[in-house]
Structures are given as structure tokens and as C-alpha cells.
Design a protein around this nucleic acid. Structure first.
Length: 309
DNA sequence: CTGTCATGAAGAG
DNA sequence: TCTTCCTGACAGT
């Protein structure tokens, strides 16, 4: 499910297929009925991700805010615009009323696949759909979010202000990096915990956390104030690069050691994608020492006890 | 069928 | 640091 790259991809998708159009907003499940009624028929003005949060301002002056949490996902149907040149063959299959089809699950491991859905348009909601955003040609169904609410622009800005920098959302990447340097080196909390703190840096989840720290060969338990500023800058730049890759490819592939063939294999096999995440007890890909799994602030932490110092 | 686990984070104490 | 919320996949019975 979602770390930062997923939400940026969703923002791009909604920008292509909903922004600038009046959007039919409903809540098939009913739990967002009031919010849906306030937005229904309004034009979506933008769709923007900051960290793991999605903000969609409407011409009513209100802002839809969505956070997927641990389980949230979007299902897309109909004429789904290609996000990158690479998927160009697989978009908009035919006229929606005749051949709805492309169901594209975004949020899980993003193995997006088209599936023939039958004949009905609009497609019947699958599962508990909190909100449906629809045009004649495109449907986006949101299931299982931890947050889905309508905010005033001020309240939306307040939420954004509580977040640390997101490399994709900031104007000046280097200046934003200095903010992260201050927020990491100013505290005694473990750096592994600080990278997961959305008010320090936005968008990093458990997988990127483990992988960024391995790539830096840095022990996650190092207190923030013991991490050299240059190391934090390098972590920030690495995060910016990994996020850009994830947005482009739709996959969290964090191994820079793979050649083109290796990367292609890893795209299809989650077991090949990471250095340490999910590899507890397995040999470190660099030194062979078993990867350690332990708890850090109630989340699973993966690290190589030999490489990361 | 049940139990377990998961890429998140708010809120209580 | 613990509990709670939300959903789905999968392993085991």
C-alpha cells in the first residue's frame, strides 16, 4: 500500500482524468454522504500530494483531503489515462459505456492490470467504497482510507504546514533539505524513527525507511543528533531520487546494484526489490550476515547489523 | 472458517 | 507506549 510515491501517482491520475471537469461525487458506502453532497457536481481544480496526503480543491472553495492509512486503495475504471509513456498501450480501452473494463488497483503493490469487468457502466462499487469520483468516462473508487474529509482552504493549509518537506512538493529541494537536517540533528530520537515522522520529512514509510538507512549504511538506532549533517543531506537527496523513481515506475525498487535485466526481474518479483525490508533472517545481500528484524516504536524495523553502523 | 499480518497515524494516559 | 480504526490477503484448520 501507500508510501509517498503511491499518493503522487494518484494525484497525477486524478489531474489527468478529473481536474478541470465537474465531478460526480458520491459515497456508495454512506460514511462520507455529507461530504460527498457538498462536493457533488463541483469542478475539481487540482489534485496534489504532499507526503502521504492527497488534497483536491474544488471550485466551491472546499478541499477534499484523503489519507490512505494502512489499508486504503483506489480502484480506477473506464478511460484511465496512461501515467507514463511506458503504460501507453494499456489505457482507455474502448468506449466506456460499451466496454468499461480497465480496473486498475492503485495502492497495493501497484501491479496494475487490466481486467474485463463485464458490461455495466458505471461499474458497481466493489467492497466498501467511501467515495466515488466520477465523470462519464472515468471512475475512481476509494476504499478503506484512514481520512476522507472536506476542509476549508485554511484547514487544509494547516494540515500541510504540520508536514515536513516532500521533495516533489517543495520549490527549493536544497533549502528543504536544510529543514530536514535541523529536524533530525536537533533531536535525540533514533534516526529510524525520525525518518518515519511525517513532520520531519513527508512521505517515507516503513519500506523506504529501512531501505534509505541501508543505502546510507546507517544504523537506524543512531540518535538524530549524532548523525552528521552531511549524512542527513545525503539521505534527503537519496529520498528525492527514490521517490522520483517510484512515481515514474509505480514500484518501490530500492536496489541500485541491479542491471537492467535485474531491475526488470525485480519489477515482477517483490522478493528481489529490497536490500533489507522484509528479509528478516535472510542473508544480507552485501555481507551475508542475517538481516535483523526488531520493533522500533511499534513498527517492524529491518537492518543489517554488520553493514549499518 | 479462524487467525494473523500489513507499506499509518491519532488519541489516551 | 498502548489502543483503536479501517480493509484485504493469505495460511492454517
Amino acid at each position: 500500500m501507500p508510501e509517498g510515491h503511491t499518493v503522487h501517482r494518484i494525484a497525477r491520475q486524478l489531474t489527468l482524468d478529473l481536474v478541470g471537469r465537474p465531478v460526480s461525487v458520491s459515497s456508495p458506502q454512506g460514511r462520507f454522504a455529507d461530504g460527498a453532497a457538498r462536493l457533488d457536481g463541483r469542478t475539481m481544480l487540482a489534485a496534489t500530494a504532499v507526503g502521504k496526503q492527497l488534497f483536491c480543491p474544488f471550485d466551491s472553495g472546499e478541499v477534499l483531503r484523503v489519507h490512505l492509512g494502512l489499508y486504503g486503495a483506489w480502484d480506477l475504471y473506464g478511460q484511465v489515462s496512461p501515467l507514463t509513456a511506458g503504460d501507453a498501450t494499456r489505457a482507455s480501452l474502448g468506449a466506456p459505456r460499451v466496454r468499461p473494463a480497465t480496473r486498475l488497483r492503485v495502492g497495493e503493490d501497484e501491479s496494475e492490470h487490466a481486467a474485463d469487468d463485464g458490461l455495466a457502466w458505471p461499474p458497481p462499487p466493489l467492497g466498501q467504497v467511501r467515495v466515488r469520483l466520477a465523470t462519464d468516462a472515468f471512475v475512481a473508487d476509494l476504499r478503506g482510507p484512514s481520512a476522507c474529509e472536506v476542509l476549508t482552504p485554511d484547514d487544509a493549509a494547516a494540515v500541510r504546514d504540520r508536514l515536513g518537506p516532500d521533495p516533489v512538493a517543495v520549490d527549493d529541494v536544497d533549502a528543504a533539505g536544510e529543514v530536514v537536517v535541523e529536524r533530525v540533528t536537533g533531536r535525540g530520537v533514533a534516526v529510524g524513527q525520525l525518518l518515519m515522522d511525517q513532520s520531519v520529512v513527508a512521505g517515507i514509510g516503513n519500506i523506504y525507511r529501512a531501505e534509505l538507512l541501508f543505502r546510507a549504511r546507517l544504523d537506524p538506532w543512531t540518535p538524530g543528533r549524532r548523525v552528521p549533517a552531511g549524512t542527513v543531506r545525503a539521505l534527503w537527496r537519496d529520498w528525492a531520487g527514490l521517490l522520483a523513481d517510484g512515481i515514474r515506475d509505480g514500484v518501490m525498487l530500492t536496489r541500485e546494484d541491479l542491471d537492467a535485466a535485474g531491475r526488470e526481474a525485480a519489477r515482477h518479483d517483490p522478493a528481489l526489490r529490497h536490500w533489507v525490508y522484509g528479509r528478516g533472517g535472510l542473508p544480507c545481500r552485501v555481507c551475508g550476515t542475517p538481516v535483523v528484524v526488531e520493533d522500533m516504536a511499534a513498527r517492524r524495523l529491518y537492518r543489517c547489523p554488520a553493514c549499518q553502523v
